[in-house]
């Protein structure tokens, strides 16, 4: 009965995230990206297009800012007096940060985007009505909207290429918001197969497409709860904590020399992606 359910499980319904007392169990998917290793080759972005059936919108729409690159490589140029070719760009791979307290989730009028039990930020295409509030409220601007009906648009997937579309993923029609899912189709397949064996996923059994193709192994993906996982060890080594808006190491006197940080952490979205600062002067 509804009211009694409400009263009996009251404390559960008043539970907040992120939390220390009941962490995600048994999975909390997270990532770490070593910017020092990143060469800006864009392989991750291409892999993402292939894995997730992203529409290739073409030059004109790309220039309009209507590209659908869930995984994008951003270029930054330091403001010094050197010419661009001499100085070289600094690269930042950017994708959905799968925030623990995602600003996009609260504002969706229809609840099309939610926090999953394994700590992801899900997007339900069928439920989305396209108010674009999630994108407006995303500090990272990593949500991409289907401005046109790409599956029926010419040259998005030329005829022979449609054979190459990933059958595990739907095509999104016009008016729907989409974004990086941490390759949730791979995670779910993995989870189901190990469930039959009565165990949890081991590190490396599920890889995201971007991680898989990265030639320099800059991207690490895994279960943050699993103490054996590489991502857990990297987060631990860099002393980056999930449920804080300012890292303990940064509050220490003199700060810390560790490279790990999270982007726009101070806005309290509690992102699940840790970046490791560049030590080289610039790439290439």
């Amino acid at each position: 009965m509804s009211v009694s359910n409400l009263l009996e499980n009251w404390s559960e319904f008043r539970h907040k995230h992120p939390v220390e007392d009941v962490p995600h169990d048994p999975y909390k998917w997270a990532m770490s990206i070593d910017l020092d290793a990143c060469t800006g080759c864009n392989a991750c972005s291409v892999a993402c297009y292939a894995e997730n059936n992203l529409p290739v919108v073409g030059k004109e729409k790309y220039a309009h800012g209507q590209a659908m690159h869930w995984m994008r490589i951003e270029r930054y140029w330091p403001e010094d007096d050197r010419e661009f070719p001499d100085q070289g760009a600094q690269f930042l791979p950017m994708m959905c940060q799968q925030c623990e307290a995602a600003p996009c989730e609260t504002v969706c009028p229809v609840g099309a985007t939610n926090h999953t039990p394994d700590g992801l930020n899900s997007q339900v295409y069928n439920r989305c009505i396209g108010s674009r509030y999630c994108s407006a409220n995303c500090p990272f601007k990593v949500r991409y909207f289907n401005w046109y009906d790409y599956p029926t648009t010419e040259n998005v997937w030329p005829a022979e290429m449609t054979q190459q579309l990933n059958p595990d993923i739907t095509l999104r029609g016009k008016g729907v918001m989409e974004k990086c899912t941490f390759c949730i189709q791979r995670i779910r397949v993995g989870q189901r197969s190990v469930k039959n064996e009565g165990r949890v996923l081991r590190d490396g059994e599920v890889q995201t497409a971007c991680q898989q193709v990265c030639p320099t192994n800059a991207i690490t993906f895994g279960n943050l709860i699993d103490t054996e996982s590489k991502v857990h060890q990297q987060w631990k080594a860099q002393r980056v904590e999930l449920a804080v808006d300012e890292q303990t190491k940064d509050k220490e006197e003199g700060g810390s020399d560790l490279r790990g940080y999270r982007i726009l952490e101070e806005l309290r979205p509690y992102p699940s992606v840790m970046y490791m600062e560049r030590v080289r002067e610039s790439a290439i």
Partner: peptide, 8 residues
């Protein structure tokens, strides 16, 4: 469903 880290 948890949304944005807020209580249900």
């Amino acid at each position: 469903q948890i949304k944005g880290g807020k209580p249900v």
